[in-house]
Protein backbone atom coordinates (compact mmCIF):
# COMPACT_ATOMS: atom_id res chain seq x y z
CA UNK A 1 0.00 0.00 0.00
CA UNK A 2 0.96 3.61 0.01
CA UNK A 3 3.93 4.20 2.21
CA UNK A 4 3.73 7.40 4.18
CA UNK A 5 7.01 8.85 5.22
CA UNK A 6 7.88 11.44 7.78
CA UNK A 7 10.86 13.10 9.31
CA UNK A 8 13.70 11.31 10.98
CA UNK A 9 13.42 7.92 9.28
CA UNK A 10 16.22 5.74 8.09
CA UNK A 11 18.96 6.47 5.62
CA UNK A 12 17.92 5.67 2.04
CA UNK A 13 19.98 4.15 -0.75
CA UNK A 14 20.40 5.90 -4.08
CA UNK A 15 19.22 4.25 -7.28
CA UNK A 16 20.52 5.21 -10.66
CA UNK A 17 19.28 4.56 -14.14
CA UNK A 18 20.85 5.02 -17.54
CA UNK A 19 18.58 6.98 -19.85
CA UNK A 20 18.99 7.93 -23.47
CA UNK A 21 17.30 11.27 -23.97
CA UNK A 22 16.70 12.90 -27.33
CA UNK A 23 16.33 16.61 -26.83
CA UNK A 24 15.88 18.98 -29.74
CA UNK A 25 16.88 16.14 -32.04
CA UNK A 26 20.14 15.49 -30.23
CA UNK A 27 20.56 12.18 -28.40
CA UNK A 28 22.54 11.89 -25.20
CA UNK A 29 23.04 9.13 -22.69
CA UNK A 30 22.77 10.10 -19.03
CA UNK A 31 23.33 8.11 -15.89
CA UNK A 32 20.89 9.66 -13.47
CA UNK A 33 19.53 9.33 -9.97
CA UNK A 34 16.06 7.87 -10.65
CA UNK A 35 14.53 10.87 -8.90
CA UNK A 36 15.77 13.33 -11.52
CA UNK A 37 12.86 14.91 -13.34
CA UNK A 38 12.94 15.78 -17.00
CA UNK A 39 13.14 19.42 -15.90
CA UNK A 40 16.22 18.85 -13.75
CA UNK A 41 17.81 16.63 -16.37
CA UNK A 42 17.45 19.42 -18.91
CA UNK A 43 18.68 22.14 -16.57
CA UNK A 44 21.27 20.41 -14.42
CA UNK A 45 22.57 17.64 -16.66
CA UNK A 46 22.19 18.92 -20.22
CA UNK A 47 22.79 22.61 -19.57
CA UNK A 48 19.49 23.57 -21.21
CA UNK A 49 18.46 26.17 -18.64
CA UNK A 50 15.90 27.88 -20.87
CA UNK A 51 13.19 25.66 -19.37
CA UNK A 52 12.30 27.17 -15.99
CA UNK A 53 11.34 25.87 -12.58
CA UNK A 54 8.61 28.06 -11.14
CA UNK A 55 6.98 25.70 -8.66
CA UNK A 56 8.18 22.13 -9.19
CA UNK A 57 4.61 21.09 -8.34
CA UNK A 58 2.77 21.15 -11.66
CA UNK A 59 0.98 24.37 -10.85
CA UNK A 60 2.60 27.13 -12.91
CA UNK A 61 3.54 25.92 -16.40
CA UNK A 62 7.01 27.51 -16.45
CA UNK A 63 8.56 24.11 -17.17
CA UNK A 64 6.42 23.38 -20.23
CA UNK A 65 8.20 21.40 -22.97
CA UNK A 66 6.96 19.22 -25.80
CA UNK A 67 7.24 15.44 -25.54
CA UNK A 68 6.35 13.65 -28.75
CA UNK A 69 4.83 16.89 -29.96
CA UNK A 70 2.52 17.43 -26.99
CA UNK A 71 3.00 20.10 -24.36
CA UNK A 72 3.65 18.64 -20.91
CA UNK A 73 5.09 19.71 -17.58
CA UNK A 74 8.68 18.59 -17.27
CA UNK A 75 8.64 19.00 -13.47
CA UNK A 76 6.17 16.13 -13.06
CA UNK A 77 7.84 13.90 -15.63
CA UNK A 78 10.74 11.66 -14.71
CA UNK A 79 13.69 11.88 -17.05
CA UNK A 80 13.69 8.09 -17.23
CA UNK A 81 10.14 8.11 -18.59
CA UNK A 82 11.29 10.03 -21.65
CA UNK A 83 13.63 7.44 -23.09
CA UNK A 84 12.82 7.01 -26.75
CA UNK A 85 10.51 10.02 -26.79
CA UNK A 86 11.27 13.26 -28.60
CA UNK A 87 11.73 16.19 -26.26
CA UNK A 88 11.63 19.75 -27.56
CA UNK A 89 12.58 22.73 -25.42
CA UNK A 90 12.67 26.48 -25.97
CA UNK A 91 16.23 26.06 -27.23
CA UNK A 92 14.90 23.90 -30.06
CA UNK A 93 12.10 25.97 -31.59
CA UNK A 94 14.09 28.39 -33.72
CA UNK A 95 14.56 27.26 -37.30
CA UNK A 96 17.74 27.77 -39.28
CA UNK A 97 18.84 30.38 -36.80
CA UNK A 98 15.64 32.40 -37.21
CA UNK A 99 13.33 32.77 -34.26
CA UNK A 100 10.00 30.97 -34.33
CA UNK A 101 7.14 33.30 -35.36
CA UNK A 102 5.69 33.00 -31.87
CA UNK A 103 8.99 34.17 -30.38
CA UNK A 104 9.03 37.16 -32.74
CA UNK A 105 5.43 38.03 -31.98
CA UNK A 106 6.08 37.90 -28.23
CA UNK A 107 8.85 40.47 -28.69
CA UNK A 108 6.78 42.69 -30.98
CA UNK A 109 3.72 42.60 -28.71
CA UNK A 110 5.66 42.81 -25.44
CA UNK A 111 4.21 39.49 -24.30
CA UNK A 112 6.45 39.28 -21.23
CA UNK A 113 8.14 41.44 -18.65
CA UNK A 114 10.55 39.69 -16.32
CA UNK A 115 10.71 36.89 -18.88
CA UNK A 116 10.88 33.99 -16.46
CA UNK A 117 7.61 32.35 -17.47
CA UNK A 118 8.23 33.19 -21.12
CA UNK A 119 9.87 29.98 -22.37
CA UNK A 120 6.96 28.00 -20.94
CA UNK A 121 4.43 30.45 -22.38
CA UNK A 122 6.01 30.17 -25.81
CA UNK A 123 6.10 26.37 -25.70
CA UNK A 124 2.43 26.45 -24.75
CA UNK A 125 1.57 28.98 -27.42
CA UNK A 126 3.25 26.96 -30.16
CA UNK A 127 1.34 23.87 -29.04
CA UNK A 128 -1.90 25.81 -28.71
CA UNK A 129 -1.72 26.86 -32.33
CA UNK A 130 -0.93 23.30 -33.34
CA UNK A 131 -3.95 22.12 -31.33
CA UNK A 132 -6.07 24.60 -33.33
CA UNK A 133 -7.20 26.33 -30.19
CA UNK A 134 -6.36 29.87 -31.20
CA UNK A 135 -9.61 30.57 -33.01
CA UNK A 136 -10.87 33.30 -30.69
CA UNK A 137 -9.35 35.43 -27.97
CA UNK A 138 -11.41 33.61 -25.35
CA UNK A 139 -10.14 30.28 -26.63
CA UNK A 140 -6.55 31.51 -26.48
CA UNK A 141 -7.08 32.78 -22.93
CA UNK A 142 -8.60 29.49 -21.76
CA UNK A 143 -5.99 27.26 -23.31
CA UNK A 144 -3.09 29.48 -22.19
CA UNK A 145 -4.33 29.39 -18.60
CA UNK A 146 -1.99 26.60 -17.58
CA UNK A 147 0.90 29.07 -17.70
CA UNK A 148 1.00 31.60 -14.89
CA UNK A 149 2.53 35.03 -15.43
CA UNK A 150 2.95 37.18 -12.35
CA UNK A 151 4.12 40.29 -14.19
CA UNK A 152 0.74 40.31 -15.88
CA UNK A 153 1.56 40.16 -19.57
CA UNK A 154 -1.49 38.06 -20.49
CA UNK A 155 -3.26 40.52 -22.84
CA UNK A 156 -0.05 41.08 -24.77
CA UNK A 157 0.49 37.33 -25.10
CA UNK A 158 -3.03 36.96 -26.47
CA UNK A 159 -2.29 39.72 -28.96
CA UNK A 160 0.95 38.00 -29.98
CA UNK A 161 -0.74 34.66 -30.57
CA UNK A 162 -3.61 36.30 -32.42
CA UNK A 163 -1.06 38.01 -34.66
CA UNK A 164 0.79 34.78 -35.46
CA UNK A 165 -2.46 33.00 -36.33
CA UNK A 166 -3.80 35.84 -38.47
CA UNK A 167 -0.55 35.99 -40.40
CA UNK A 168 -0.82 32.30 -41.18
CA UNK A 169 2.35 31.31 -39.40
CA UNK A 170 0.34 29.16 -37.08
CA UNK A 171 1.21 25.69 -38.18
CA UNK A 172 4.88 26.38 -38.40
CA UNK A 173 6.47 23.03 -37.82
CA UNK A 174 9.26 22.85 -35.33
Amino acid sequence: MRADISRGTTVPEVFETVTELTVNGRPSVLSLDTRVTLLDALRDHLGLVGTKKGCDQGACGACTVHVNGKRVLSCLTLAAQCEGRAVTTIEGVARAGAPHPVQEAFVARDGFQCGFCTPGQIMSAIALIDEERAGTDDEIREFMSGNLCRCGAYPNMVAAIREVVSEGNGNAVI
Binding site: R2, A3, D4, I5, S6, T34, T37, D56, Q57, G58, L73, L76, T77, L78, A80, Q81
Partner: peptide, 27 residues
Protein backbone atom coordinates in the same frame (compact mmCIF):
# COMPACT_ATOMS: atom_id res chain seq x y z
CA UNK B 1 6.34 -0.54 -1.27
CA UNK B 2 6.02 -0.59 -5.06
CA UNK B 3 3.67 1.72 -6.94
CA UNK B 4 2.54 2.32 -10.50
CA UNK B 5 3.67 5.40 -12.38
CA UNK B 6 1.48 6.63 -15.23
CA UNK B 7 1.03 10.36 -15.92
CA UNK B 8 2.77 11.13 -12.65
CA UNK B 9 0.77 14.26 -11.98
CA UNK B 10 -0.37 13.07 -8.56
CA UNK B 11 2.23 10.41 -7.82
CA UNK B 12 5.37 12.48 -8.38
CA UNK B 13 3.84 15.57 -6.80
CA UNK B 14 3.12 13.68 -3.58
CA UNK B 15 6.54 12.03 -3.64
CA UNK B 16 8.17 15.45 -3.83
CA UNK B 17 6.01 16.66 -0.96
CA UNK B 18 7.19 13.69 1.07
CA UNK B 19 3.69 12.26 1.42
CA UNK B 20 4.43 9.18 -0.67
CA UNK B 21 7.71 7.32 -0.59
CA UNK B 22 7.58 4.18 -2.69
CA UNK B 23 10.71 2.06 -2.92
CA UNK B 24 9.93 1.10 -6.49
CA UNK B 25 8.07 2.81 -9.31
CA UNK B 26 6.79 0.68 -12.16
CA UNK B 27 6.40 2.88 -15.22
Amino acid sequence: DAAYLAGGTTQLDLMKDGVLGPGMLVD
